[in-house]
């Protein structure tokens, strides 16, 4: 694989995000004598309404904002791919059932699902995960279904069947490897979407509860001081948009590579 500037830039960003999540910084200590401080050596991005270090909160926030998103996307991908391949392989009524289900679910926004889940459960990361999973598996299922239907009509699958391979073996050994590349590209495109959904739900107060740092929650908190200290909104806003843009660009690049092959 030739070195692609988008891939290199993305690897650097991913490395930075790993380091950010692991840095032992103090994001919780409040100092009411030092509220809304300007950026300085001690506080590179200043302090917030409770005198907490904004840079530290931003770094620790990657754990819930970025890495939790990765967990959620992987969960969605696993569930969606499994159901998509099963339905694609079974075809017929099962395939129709999956497609009709997907048609209905595509019109249901994650925010609404999150509100409903939060109404019957306490707010928190597990609530967010359920909300994202309920709608997030569908695009993966659609793609895995289409890929499976396409692949199983190929001659090599017929050959494998003739050699006595069962459905499970064909799905895992033949169809899944061929579907993996487009699914990975799709996961990158979905990552941004899930990141924004999770941050949006946290913005609405349905996710991480104070004082846990999370970018969407930081934005919501900072909004109350928009006129006094706009940086409290701008810093997490830039972080959210930068990560979601970077992953989207990577996904588009991977997708065009897939279709180019």
């Amino acid at each position: 694989m030739r070195r692609d500037p988008v891939l290199v830039a993305f690897a650097v960003l991913a490395g930075l995000l790993v380091v950010a999540a692991l840095l032992p910084v103090d994001a919780l200590t409040t100092d009411l004598s030092d509220r809304f401080a300007e950026p300085s050596l001690a506080h590179p991005l200043g302090t917030d309404n409770l005198g907490r270090d904004v840079a530290a909160r931003l770094l620790v926030g990657t754990r819930l904002s970025v890495w939790f998103t990765l967990v959620a996307v992987l969960a969605c991908a696993a569930v969606g791919t499994l159901l998509g391949i099963v339905a694609g392989y079974a075809g017929g009524v099962v395939g129709q059932l999956l497609q009709r289900t997907l048609d209905v679910l595509v019109a249901i926004p994650t925010v609404i699902v999150g509100l409903v889940v939060a109404a019957v459960r306490e707010p928190g990361p597990s609530t967010l995960l359920i909300a994202v999973l309920l709608t997030g598996w569908t695009p993966f299922a659609r793609l895995a279904y289409q890929l499976t239907v396409r692949e199983r009509a190929r001659e090599y699958v017929e050959g494998a069947v003739a050699l006595g391979a069962g459905p499970g073996r064909i799905a895992v050994r033949h169809i899944l490897p061929n579907a993996l590349r487009p699914l990975t590209a799709h996961a990158c495109l979905r990552f941004a979407n899930v990141l924004l959904s999770l941050a949006g739900l946290s913005f609405l107060g349905l996710g991480a509860q104070p004082p846990t740092p999370e970018w969407g929650a930081m934005l919501a908190e900072g909004r109350q001081y928009l006129f006094v200290a706009p940086q409290l909104v701008l810093v997490p806003a830039v972080a959210v948009v930068a990560v979601s843009l970077a992953v989207t660009l990577l996904g588009r690049r991977l997708e065009s590579r897939c279709s180019g092959r």
Binding site: A192, V233, L249
Partner: peptide, 14 residues
């Protein structure tokens, strides 16, 4: 691409 990547909760305060 930017329009999809910038969520409402960022765009509103901006």
């Amino acid at each position: 691409v930017l329009g999809v990547a910038v969520p409402e909760f960022v765009l509103a305060p901006l």
